[in-house]
């Protein structure tokens, strides 16, 4: 449903950049690569991009400085910071410098794709209180209630949060890491099957009165609510 994106990938490791470019192209995106900080700034100045994927450790000018300079120059396109150093303090530093999302390496193209689409969609939200619709499912985040085919579905808190998050990003994949961050507020990867378990419970509740499975599983990536 989303249009394919024009992405600037700023990554100094040529081989990793090449493989990510291939992967992202497989998702239908057009990707340009910049090798260092100054080149990234030059490319942003000379062209249009829907989003930037920015490595934190770069030659000549590090990722944080590039980020700060872009934001100072009123460049508002979504930027995902990519890093090998997944420390909480650095994450805070990256986000406060103006990154929209912060992802630890290694990252799959599927994860990046899901996050980019979520970021771009997030900017189109009008109000948080808006009633969300996905196929025959209606969700009201303010009333904290859900209906399927007009019939109320009684959901416990976690399942409700999960459905709201999926409904906000209808038809696009929410990765396991994204759901952990947004539904549970976890910045770590619990070794438990918590996401799988709650998706299963949500499915059971949504399908209690029949109807087909409204949630698509994208193996090894995440889940999407069908629109």
């Amino acid at each position: 449903m989303d249009g394919d994106l024009k992405i600037l990938l700023v990554e100094d490791d040529a081989a990793l950049a090449a493989s990510l470019v291939d992967e992202l192209q497989a998702f239908g995106h057009a990707v340009e690569v910049a090798r260092d900080g100054p080149e990234a700034l030059a490319r942003v100045g000379n062209g249009y991009f829907d989003a930037i994927i920015l490595d934190r450790l770069l030659p000549l000018l590090d990722g944080i400085s590039v980020l700060e300079r872009l934001r100072r120059e009123q460049v508002t396109i979504p930027i995902i910071m990519l890093t090998a150093l997944a420390r909480a303090t650095e994450k805070v530093e990256g986000l406060s410098a103006g990154a929209d999302d912060y992802v630890a390496k290694p990252v799959t193209a599927a994860e990046l794709d899901a996050r980019l689409r979520a970021l771009l969609r997030g900017r189109q939200w009008t109000r948080a209180s808006e009633t969300l619709r996905a196929g025959d499912i209606t969700v009201s985040p303010t009333k904290f209630r859900a209906w399927r085919s007009g019939k109320a579905v009684d959901l416990p808190k976690v399942e409700m949060d999960l459905l709201i998050e999926l409904a906000r990003n209808v038809d696009s994949v929410m990765t396991r890491a994204m759901l952990l961050e947004r539904v549970w507020g976890y910045d770590f990867d619990p070794k438990t099957n918590i996401v799988e378990t709650y998706i299963r419970r949500l499915r059971v509740k949504l399908m209690a009165d029949g109807g087909e499975d409204p949630i698509t599983t994208v193996r090894g990536v995440g889940y999407a609510l069908k629109g």
Binding site: A15, L16, L20, E23, L57, A84, L85, P106
Partner: peptide, 21 residues
């Protein structure tokens, strides 16, 4: 350890991406 993180995780990420392909 940061260097290890950077120097080893990046090639590992590369390896994983190639395997995915």
């Amino acid at each position: 350890s940061n260097d290890i993180a950077h120097d080893l995780r990046t090639p590992l990420a590369r390896l994983r991406n190639q395997l995915t392909q």
